[in-house]
Design a protein around this nucleic acid. Structure first.
Length: 107
DNA sequence: TGCCTGACCACAG
DNA sequence: ACTGTGGCCAGGC
């Protein structure tokens, strides 16, 4: 029985984010059937450190690293993205649309 | 126990 | 076309 909460589903999707790709909170929320629950996706990321979830690949709808403040360092999130070949400028992903990974389409 | 906050997005005015 | 507010679920005080 799938006693999986919306919370847990977020991790399942986030873990499936391919290398060198990024997605948005809303995209995950919408895939789960709750486009308005985007806030929960972000809140789930708070426990992402206890999971194997690449929270650094998850940004907001505008491609801005809104959650970078929750990482260890100040620009650690940016470092991780650049390490995957994703350019980040002023806390914003360059060519976000190009690297955007939509779970609704990919999954 | 109850109210408020929180890594956002969609809808309405 | 833009700005403002509501809403979703869960956790913290």
């Amino acid at each position: 029985m799938e006693e999986i909460s919306f919370f847990d589903k977020v991790y399942e999707v986030a873990k499936q984010i391919p290398y060198g790709r990024v997605t948005s909170y809303g995209a995950i929320a919408k895939y789960l059937g709750a486009a308005r629950s985007a806030r929960m996706v972000g809140w789930a990321m708070n426990n992402s450190h206890t999971k194997d979830v690449p929270a650094h690949r998850v940004v907001n709808r505008a491609g801005i690293l809104t959650g970078k403040n929750h990482f260890d360092g100040s620009n650690m999130m940016q470092q991780l993205l650049e390490n995957e070949g994703i350019s980040v400028k002023d806390n914003q992903v360059v060519d976000f649309q190009k690297y955007f990974w939509d779970p609704v389409v990919e999954l």
